[in-house]
Design a protein around this nucleic acid. Structure first.
Lengths: 231, 231
DNA sequence: CAGTCCAGTGACAGTTTCGTCACGGTTTTA
DNA sequence: TAAAACCGTGACGAAACTGTCACTGGACTG
């Protein structure tokens, strides 16, 4: 699944170059030239990472960074500041305001890409990179297979994604809202009852012929998945 | 709790400067001059972050980074590469090998510190509420779980909130009025007898099969919770 | 000691949350 | 193209939770 990147850059040529190169790496890129527009749309776009020019026409990148870091729903979003200002004080100020990295202009595109990837490597550890085993449940993304107790199960795409999300948050309670964001990243309008229905479908598939359900309902909060020991 | 930083640097003067400045920021710093020693000891030290010189006498920083990234127990450890080599290719190679950041020598110490902090901000997010242990009772908000003596208890939402409140005021007497404000923040009209009923429900859940009640009634004042030592 | 106050408790009706079913629409497969 | 698979949602009922009341026993006081 492609990470989404928002490029906030008022130089249209540079924005284009960056966009082209990041899309060539498989990222989904949105460019905005205007800091105010970025401020308005960031909550809706919910990018995984923002490349944020420090010098913007109507609101500075530093101010945007400061605002965004105070929004709980944007805490996981990485921010790389990009600027022609090479003063150390600005770098330190940017990093202290909450930027995850700071890249001076002019930069080499390969280095920018490498830094983007380094940030996203950390930002998306939740997606299992390889086979995951939790108790008697085993998920292998490479073969898109799920087994319980050694027996292969059939899951639809949505239930597969949901299981991935639960396994990535094993032992932790996950709210319906979080499940919506994680399983339906492009559909924030999904109804909470829909989550429950899909949890039910996942339970049905996982638990066929078994008495132990690894997914517990935490009333008023959400769901939690625990490993069930193999028999 | 102070984050631990391992500095792997063969220039003793530079190591000293870095150590001094990081310790002034409150970090616990270990310095090693030798890559082989670092490789041997990193698993035991388990630093939160390594400042890794690329050019080391007997094994390169790049090779160390590659090795460490393959050890699951070290995945959370941040790696910042530091080197006089300013070639972009090396930066990209370092970042792709698994470094989280790359700082060229000569660097400014404030910037290095800011980058260290930016990495640790991500590595150790300040959770507003963490796991609480009081005597034989353990509450974990992340998993929304309560255990007594290692055994998981089921609490309803109101009783969970009440326990949180008691644990946040451990050893102190809490009035019914305070409990109403803390457990029912949107219902100031809650009856005081209701508090008593819920305290009774919490006691029932906590104390099943036990003789010691961690919650004491302070007549005419309220309730106080004390840790009960594990058996 | 009797009277009063306070807190514990069982029970109940009402409210809230979640599980499930069924359906119509969309997408995928053969 | 038709059939199968998948999907999201509205409706309904089951299950869990909730706040209060009435009663009672224990603690406190004069």
């Amino acid at each position: 699944m492609a990470a989404t990147i928002l490029v906030v850059e008022d130089d249209p040529d540079l924005a284009q170059i960056v966009r082209y190169n990041l899309e060539a790496e498989g990222f989904a890129v949105t460019t905005l030239s205007d800091g105010a527009a970025a401020d308005t749309l960031v909550g809706a776009i919910r990018p995984d990472l923002v490349l944020l020019d420090l010098m913007l026409p109507n609101v500075s990148g530093l101010e945007l960074c400061r605002r965004w870091r105070q929004r709980p729903e944007l805490l996981d979003m990485r921010i790389i500041m990009v600027t022609a200002k090479s003063d150390t004080g600005d770098r330190v100020a940017g990093l202290e305001t909450g930027a995850d990295d700071y890249v001076p202009k002019p930069f080499s595109v390969p280095e920018l890409v490498a830094r983007v990837k380094a940030q996203l490597r950390r930002a998306q550890p939740d997606l299992p990179r390889g086979r995951v085993v939790a108790g008697d449940i085993e998920l292998d993304p490479a073969s898109h297979r799920v087994r319980r107790g050694g027996r292969e199960l059939h899951l639809g795409p949505t239930e597969f994604r949901m299981l991935e999300h639960f396994l990535a948050n094993l032992g932790r309670v996950v709210s319906r809202h979080q499940l919506i964001a994680g399983v339906w990243p492009r559909r924030p309008d999904i109804d909470a009852r829909t989550v429950d229905v899909h949890v039910g479908r996942l339970r049905k598939a996982l638990n066929a012929g078994r008495t132990q359900d690894p997914i517990q309902t935490v009333r008023g909060i959400g769901y939690r998945m625990d490993p069930v020991p193999p028999k």
